[in-house]
Design a protein around this nucleic acid. Sequence first.
DNA 1: GGTGCTTGGTTCATGGCATTAATCTGGGAT
DNA 2: ATCCCAGATTAATGCCATGAACCAAGCACC
Lengths: 420, 420
Amino acid sequence: MDARRTTVRDMRRANRSVLLTRIWLDGPLSRHELGQSTALSLASVSNLVGEMIAEGIVEEAGSVESDGGRPRVLLRVAPGYGYLVGADVGETRVQVELFDLAMTALAKAEYPIAAAEPDPHAVATHLLHGLAAVVEQAGVDPAAVLGFGVAVSGTVERTADAVVHAQTLGWDGVPLGAMLRAGTDIPVHVDNGAKTLGQAEMWFGAGRGARHAVIALVGSGIGASVVADGVGYRGAHSSAGEWGHTTIVYGGRRCRCGNHGCLEAYVGAEGVLDRFRQANRGRPAAGGDEESAFGELLRSPTRTAAKVLDETVGYLGAGVATLVNLFNPERVVLGGWAGLALGDRYLPQIREATARHALRQPYAQTSIELCQLGPDAVAMGAATLPMARLLREGGVPRDPAVRMTAPSQRPAGRPRSRAR
Amino acid sequence: MDARRTTVRDMRRANRSVLLTRIWLDGPLSRHELGQSTALSLASVSNLVGEMIAEGIVEEAGSVESDGGRPRVLLRVAPGYGYLVGADVGETRVQVELFDLAMTALAKAEYPIAAAEPDPHAVATHLLHGLAAVVEQAGVDPAAVLGFGVAVSGTVERTADAVVHAQTLGWDGVPLGAMLRAGTDIPVHVDNGAKTLGQAEMWFGAGRGARHAVIALVGSGIGASVVADGVGYRGAHSSAGEWGHTTIVYGGRRCRCGNHGCLEAYVGAEGVLDRFRQANRGRPAAGGDEESAFGELLRSPTRTAAKVLDETVGYLGAGVATLVNLFNPERVVLGGWAGLALGDRYLPQIREATARHALRQPYAQTSIELCQLGPDAVAMGAATLPMARLLREGGVPRDPAVRMTAPSQRPAGRPRSRAR
DNA sequence: GGTGCTTGGTTCATGGCATTAATCTGGGAT
DNA sequence: ATCCCAGATTAATGCCATGAACCAAGCACC
């Protein structure tokens, strides 16, 4: 229902995008298979693929015999056509990683963050240093870096400046995108960490193959990443999926957001430990930091701990049921460090609790799984941002005339279509 | 991220769709304005519009002087090009209405439903009779009826058979679409009533102009219709938006769905009246049916009633906050007969309660309004289903070769483009 | 070791499409 | 009358996917 024209060029871009996406996601494929699954004519597949091979973004990768006939040549995205850099701005450190297009990590850099509420400029500096460092470390031509994806907590406005509002960092209105762009020519993408992790999980993890999924992340805080019909659901201002602060116990426990009865106050790691302390006559769980204390609780639960955890599973089930009822996903993927820890031990119980609280039919149509990538995949998730753009644009650079930096074996060095 | 090709024909259809949608929604427009707002070249606008005029779906509607130059001719969708029939399958009656393309109601038919759990065949018969009746009544050529939209409660599978699961009707797996198609040649569309009402509200009511909105419907039951980026959000199996059975009071009141603490058990009219009865030492509210009892409660609230209603507003606020946090809409539209009744009197309080329970930022980015169409717009909502298809397809009939039934003043009687 | 078969991939002519630039149309102002 | 101005149409152009014909590579069979 959008009010935008379509031109003949959009068509080609769209078709390139479809082909490239399919080649990238579903591994080496022959031209024939591509035609089959995209409904594109073989002629067009050949034409478009030929163009992309000439540009260097796609390459032939061996062939496979086909009973009786000519062997089919397999195609894949050339891993070395370009590189992606992803960064995770956590509460304790900035982590930067460089990947090739096969998503193989080639270099890594990490910078600790001292302050509880770090200075945005310091973080931006870390990020830019990290970017330069991993490019240097991997020995990659900076011009071949297709984009720099940065994942932060909090919400990110979808404007050019990528203004960040992050309560946990104490940032309110930090134009991180603009700040980074001032320091590099590489295209910068900033987004929420839960969303990027969700995208990574959809492409490489437990979400593979699903078109409608919710990635539910439980850590110290709680968030969710909603994927609807293959694309991330963002809402009007990109803050959709704030699952942690939905009311689950009206008038209940006070939450750090200031409200009462939020899911996070019951299921978030901090909330769980706090509830345990109350149930345990004021004595907190053993263990130094939150994560080890939470792990200790799970590993050797006392009677009190078991009770608290049982209740936690119940609350979590009600929370997941809310997601199931409202979003009707075909899959719910539970992640985050606390979510994985809980899920490892209590997944059947979580499913039961969800079944108790969700409507029968939507529940029957969904499955509840655990994240497969672990919580360290945030940087990779961030690297999916430039990759998503590359796939969306069908691999073409901004200016269709330029871009002959890609390695091209062809003597002509130009797309064939010009040569006529 | 869908794996579907684009052809040169899709392009034209998409552009026709964009133009037709814009002409229909934003009233009479000149070719110039169309070019402006769609970014289409004036030549293409002229070409496409000319085609649509030749087909009869668009017509010129006067002109407006433009300072100094040639006056601009205004275009509109020809109201009599075709007709839409919408039906509302309620719990007590089947209502069928016929509209022209300007959405003017031209005929109406109504059939009472006796049983609490009506026989699907009886309902289908009513619907088909109603369809024939309104066509007859309006004196319209049956071939000019573009589609028959049917709104039911419950969820509707998006398959050709349009299988309906409706708890309130006692239907589980009724292929209503298939049943209706067996009795008429007119294209049949079946969907959930909340969703169609939401669409109507988006096009003609309080949702106008919004791209992200949630229409929250509170009656005896509770539902929501989510519009994301201009299109209805359906989820994997079309049951998204089941807001009524999200847990709001963990372990709370028993709901008719069998669970505990559902929003519906607190804010649904039945739940409110039930809570009043409990608070009122077992004496129910005055009034015969649910609706009048609820109205009575609101009109002259006793101290007890006021307290119950205050609490209701609180629960409702928490429920709306859940929608705001999870969907991040730019607008929440409150409707349904009970929702409107509550909203008329308590809208400021509902806003406050929502503010208390929602995150600050998403709440600040949204506005909470009341439905403008009233609960009787369900049949019109159903008629939006065929209209949506017409707009999506750019007005072309199924077989592009046929369709010369439309009144055409041109002597040639064919689209000009052929005449070269 | 040719001949035909089968499957994979490419070339070429064709028709559809939106675009730009030029042209035409209808009104007021000079 | 003539000019000007803006709206609308026509003509020429270049891009695009498609179907049909054609080339390529392996295999089996005589």
